[in-house]
Design a protein around this nucleic acid. Structure first.
Lengths: 150, 150
DNA sequence: GCACAATTGTTGCCTTGACAACTGTTGCTG
DNA sequence: CAGCAACAGTTGTCAAGGCAACAATTGTGC
């Protein structure tokens, strides 16, 4: 609101994006602990990916999460230690691992899905359907612009 | 692009925001090093704030950067060590410090401002003036929604 | 003026994530 | 099939940042 910025958001964009990211992470973790789950944001995302996409290789998961392999190894260590995830040797390639949810991991996944949706719903409160799709399209364009210049 | 998402962005919002944030940071740091400056993103933001807002207390700066005091102390250590910033005892309150740019800090500030603007300009390429203000307004609303629920 | 709570900046400890070096495996090429 | 480059995952090392404990200072209520 508050009408017109002089030209546009010169640097404000960066600040807005950063703060929204932090609030999103904080909101999701807070929602998780409120439900009694002791999960970090990244663990949540990993479980979600594994739940929706099915078992996959560690490298694939790293790429989906935009994470480097080293960080992923430690993430998997924690998830495996909590028995949410299993590292199964890939039968076709002895270098690779199949990462799959355990039974309790799958159960957990079903129960935490609602947390993320609640937060997303809250974030988009008071925005019409049209505005939501427009927001997504504008953000996608921004991401494309930034990735191009790598 | 690609038209219509079925309902909206259920979880995609989080992923988009996160990736844009990372790309923004990476682009700005890359732009800085390309110009020969060895600055991290946070150091850049701190210098920018000090340049535009003028000298201020360490606590104020921390609040503006949405940073905790511990992180700020170390950030100031680095900036002071590079002689971009000075910690001056506040005359009115012996607990507090006035953080001010040194001469070379002010000179640096003028030279790095363009870097951030270049990146912001690149990020908003191919977006009309109208779309830019709309993006800002939509993002502001999202941030408000998320902060309310703290 | 004196205890006591609040505030300012600093420090220690910990977690997260990035990057490079490394091991083991695969696939390609001669 | 020998050699070698590419790839998968792990580990070490590092920087950034969060959080709690702390010392110094301020302000408040008695």
């Amino acid at each position: 609101m508050s009408g017109k910025a002089s030209t546009l958001a010169p640097f404000q964009l960066c600040s807005l994006i950063g703060r929204i990211r932090n609030e999103l992470h904080a909101n999701i973790e807070q929602e998780l602990t409120r439900q009694g789950f002791e999960l970090g944001f990244t663990q949540y995302v990993a479980l979600k990916k594994l739940g929706t996409e099915g078992p996959m290789t560690a490298g694939e998961l790293a790429r989906l999460l935009h994470h480097n392999p080293g960080a992923l190894t430690r993430l998997l260590d924690k998830l495996e230690q909590q028995d949410y995830v299993r590292r199964v040797p890939d039968p076709g390639d002895r270098r690779a691992l199949r990462i799959e949810l355990t039974a309790s991991g799958r159960a957990l996944w079903k129960r935490i899905n609602a947390c993320g949706e609640r937060v997303a719903e809250r974030a988009l409160e008071r925005s019409t359907e049209k505005e939501r799709t427009q927001l997504q399209s504008l953000l996608s364009r921004v991401l494309d612009n930034l990735r191009q210049s790598d």
